[in-house]
Amino acid sequence: MDQTQTPIIEVRNLELAYNDYVVMRDINFSVTKGDIFIVMGASGCGKSTLLKALIGLLRPQKGEVLYSGIDLWALDDEGQKAVMRRFGVLYQGGALWSSLTLSENIALPLEIYASLSRGQIRDIVALKLAMVGLSGYEDFYPSEISGGMRKRAGLARAIALDPEIIFFDEPSAGLDPVSARMLDDLILQLRDTLGATILIVTHELASIFAVGTNALFLDDRKKTMGAIGNPKELLRTSRDPKVIEFLTRGERQEGAVS
């Protein structure tokens, strides 16, 4: 990691809990600009909880979440909004607002934050839909399109304001292999065209190896982070049996065989 650069996201000593139940503790990592950072781990290990703390939905019990050095959870409402304005989130099911059409969904962030004319908004909406391969679906309601399309439309909404950081919650969950692959390609494309930093929460191995430049493994038994590093490197060098088991789908239980 480039030491001279301030990391775009930095997490320090994070502890997450629902009331008294601690999900994860002692989480430390940083994400550099342009990274495709993967948060991985078994189902139910707290990946999504960590994501909630990162995007401002769940106040951590302890610790800091720094965006370019600013602690999200130390800010007031307005300050938080200003930070959150810098990122886009693709939720697991797309989370499109069901009472709005696709174009209205994508236009809403633009109406709030950008001072654009109706015509300009229409053009940008068309552009974003084209970027995710949904040109022409402007007037469809979320219930009228397939799950994969909803996800892509959710992505179009997430990138509506050209965010610096895009968060993905289980992007390939519920998609067929080809659609999942297409989404991976789309993620790489977005990083290259928008220059965005990307953080993905997933347990989909194919995606992890295909797009991840850096990865964090969450250990559900120890309730903390297991390992951190490039996923391919981790597979080669890690001595943590949990990490190896995860990355090889349980086929190799011991660390560092090769």
Partner: peptide, 8 residues
């Protein structure tokens, strides 16, 4: 959640 993260 999507509204909240949008700052609405």
């Amino acid at each position: 959640d999507a509204l909240r993260t949008l700052g609405v």
